[in-house]
Design a protein around this nucleic acid. Structure first.
Lengths: 151, 151
DNA sequence: TATTGTTATACTCTATAACTATA
DNA sequence: TATAGTTATAGAGTATAACAATA
């Protein structure tokens, strides 16, 4: 006889994943039309309006390894959206920054983010939207999450 | 001058991803200790207590391509957790089912899922947990999501 | 020796498309 | 021809560990 195994749907984690994946995939499809991935967008968004930033700082801020940042950066450099520069005072250090092309692109991608947000949540009653945001923010604080999730 | 680009944190999608990723990663780490991935767990969970099921049906149910199911199944077969069998009436068709070993494993993994759920959400006030579940279930229904997310 | 960054390697997840066997 | 499934290929995302240059 089979043990009593709870249904998948018994878990909040399940419902979170269902909704989060739907929203993220919808956004990923919009970005793909501009030949950008969600991780690439996140890195560009982080650099927007900031001073040139080292891969290490970006890795920490985005919860990635330095190797992962290098790979992501290589792709964005190949697309002409960011630039890598040597630090003058420390021969080991590098910095990453948006190119003019990348900087001009960010608002366009941000508009897609807004569009996705509204397509996904406009239907939701105002009270629910507020409650959801509050509960999620509380959870992030409780979990002690400091890095931004790119996946 | 820079355009006015809203902060990442202005979007509900951002907060959902932060929380969902945290919960999923915490679960993935627990499963990894048993040498199982989340996608593998999802497939095993779907097969638990069911008749032998075709890859096509599984693909549809899990929102994957048939090729992805084949690959996932290959790994689970290599681990001795599921078995592939030819259908007697249709020479093209195959079915997948849990082995005895796989069936005995599911409750153990389900206990990890329960543990993860409680570690992640036990702190949450009862009202919030209920509200969160209701809001997420509503969203899933509104989005018309039918497949279970494995990612 | 320690640190910064890159490179090498590997694995999961996923897709698309070609292919094989059968219907 | 259509269908079921597998295989081939590819790319994103991620990690660990080795490495080179510099401090």
């Amino acid at each position: 006889m089979l043990s009593d195994v709870p249904d998948l749907t018994a878990h909040l984690g399940y419902w979170l994943r269902q909704v989060s994946n739907h929203v993220s995939h919808a956004f990923a499809r919009k970005l793909a039309a501009k030949d950008v991935t969600v991780a690439e967008w996140a890195l560009m968004r982080v650099l927007y309006g900031e001073q040139p930033t080292s891969p290490s700082r970006l890795a920490e801020h985005m919860g990635l390894t330095r190797g992962a940042v290098t790979k992501l950066a290589d792709r964005l450099i190949a697309k002409g959206l960011i630039a890598r520069q040597a630090n003058t005072s420390d021969g080991r250090a590098q910095t990453l920054e948006l190119t003019a092309k990348g900087e001009g692109f960010v608002p366009e991608l941000a508009a897609l983010a807004d569009q996705n947000e509204s397509e996904c949540f406009a239907h939701m009653p105002d009270d629910d939207r507020k409650a959801l945001e509050r509960i999620l923010r509380d959870a992030v604080a409780r979990f002690g999450i400091t890095a931004i999730a790119t996946e």
